[in-house]
Nucleic acid binder design. Structure first.
Length: 420
DNA sequence: TCTGGGGTCCTAGGACCC
DNA sequence: TCTGGGGTCCTAGGACCC
């Protein structure tokens, strides 16, 4: 049995923690670059603001209803998230952190079915008391059903924020009330396709013939249907696997047209990606670079391109990764476009201790590289200052609009809330 | 004028081989 | 120069998630 614990409109709840004036009024949090809405308080949802709607489209609504608007403060949310997760760790033998605001708990061998609702309430009240964040809990035999249970707990206040779907009848009852598009793994496209086949509710989906499902969509739909019927395909995973790729990319606050500026962004992303790579004790075998113009302005000519290079031996050295990335950039750069976004992607990770050496490499060079990178990382993590490579572009002037940022309440001394 | 960032997985289609 | 089937591998793009 799984429990899915999901924080209620997490980013808004974080902002409310240290700013009680936000309680009971409509609040939204915007994505990076103040682009679109990524979290809404219940009051904001009630005004009809949809998830992921571009901020400029709701300007009038914001003014009219005095909606409080915040830029994303990820370091703050990340810090609150780790406190929530630590609390959950103390409440279950094993947890799988699924995203910044969700975790699966393994409840196998955990009390009698039926007593699980009480346990869910215990989780809710403990997290609320310790951290101050409201959560909902969904309990069920598969992850997909636990997601559905959580959705039910969020949608129906009468549940008290906890839904236990141990019993088959309750699963079916809830499924018949829920649109197929609400199911985990069913996005907009698949939902439309299913509706064209007359499948509107989750229950109808659960009854779909598996071979038919495979033809209509793909293997993932088959797995989802199985999971709705209690067959586990997505098992509990408390030690996260090594990631497959690492991306560092941003949209720019303003369009960029010149070679030097754009090249600097690539340097910066490459350097940051390399830093994260070393932070996870990994080396990479592949570097990819992409640049593109805006997607939405039809008057501008569009251009989008990427290039990939395989390194002669896996590397974690910023100098290697920056050099490779800028060479790739030179190969795809084209004059005459208004660029909106760029990025660097690293892949094919391995443990730097056990890598296959380049046949022609000199081992002492690798040692020196590791030492140098270690020193740079140490300096950059400390409060003493920053070291960077000449090609990098200092972040602040091009990166992200964040007009409505809340203080770093928990991660910067000067922003600590004071009690007078 | 302004439309996120960071991931994973699957599929279709092209290149290439025998 | 034309012809076929079967296989692998790679890449681009789509769909989905939060």
């Amino acid at each position: 049995m799984y429990a899915l614990v999901d924080c209620n409109n997490f980013y808004v709840s974080c902002e409310r923690l240290f700013n009680p004036a936000l309680k009971g009024v409509p609040v939204v949090v915007l994505s990076n670059n103040d682009g679109c809405v990524v979290a809404r308080s219940p009051e904001a949802k009630a005004l009809g603001i949809k998830m992921a709607v571009p901020a400029f489209q709701i300007k009038e609504l914001i003014k009219k209803h005095q909606i409080r608007v915040y830029s994303s403060n990820y370091s703050f949310y990340g810090d609150i998230s780790s406190r929530v997760m630590a609390t959950l760790e103390s409440l279950a033998p094993q947890i799988e952190v699924y995203s910044i605001d969700e975790a699966f708990l393994d409840l196998s061998g955990f009390g009698q079915p039926g007593s699980l609702t009480d346990y869910g309430q215990h989780i809710r009240s403990t997290v609320k008391q310790y951290i101050g964040i409201p959560v909902c809990v969904g309990i069920a035999p598969t992850k997909t059903l636990a997601k559905l249970a959580n959705h039910g707990a969020k949608s129906y206040p009468r549940t008290g924020g906890v839904v236990d779907l141990s019993a088959k009848e309750r699963q079916q009852k809830l499924m018949s009330l829920v649109d197929v598009g609400e199911i985990w793994g069913i996005g907009r496209k698949t939902a439309e396709k299913l509706q064209r086949h007359g499948i509107k509710t989750a229950f109808q989906l659960s009854q779909l013939d598996l071979q038919h499902a495979q033809r209509v969509a793909n293997i993932n739909l088959v797995k989802t249907i199985d999971e709705l019927n209690g067959v586990i395909h997505y098992s509990f995973d408390d030690v996260p696997e090594i990631r497959k790729q690492l991306i560092c990319s941003r949209s720019f606050a303003q369009r960029m047209t010149d070679y030097t500026s754009l090249r600097q962004t690539i340097c910066e992303f490459a350097a940051r990606a390399a830093e994260r790579l070393r932070g996870e004790q990994l080396a990479c075998g592949v570097v990819q670079v992409f640049i593109r113009t805006g997607q939405f302005n039809n008057n501008d000519p569009g251009y989008s391109n990427s290039a990939t290079a395989r390194l002669s031996a896996p590397a974690a050295d910023t100098r290697t990764i920056v050099k490779t990335a800028t060479d790739l950039f030179d190969a795809i750069w084209k004059e005459g476009y208004r660029y909106a976004k760029s990025g660097v992607m690293l892949g094919e990770f391995c443990d730097p201790q056990t890598v296959q050496q380049d046949l022609f490499a000199d081992a002492s060079v690798d040692e020196e590289s590791a030492r140098l990178m270690g020193v740079i990382d140490q300096i950059n993590r400390s409060s003493k200052g920053k070291v960077w490579f000449a090609g990098q572009r200092p972040y602040e002037d091009w990166f992200m609009k964040r007009a409505n940022l809340s203080p770093a309440y928990t991660t910067r001394w000067s922003d600590l809330p004071l009690v007078r």
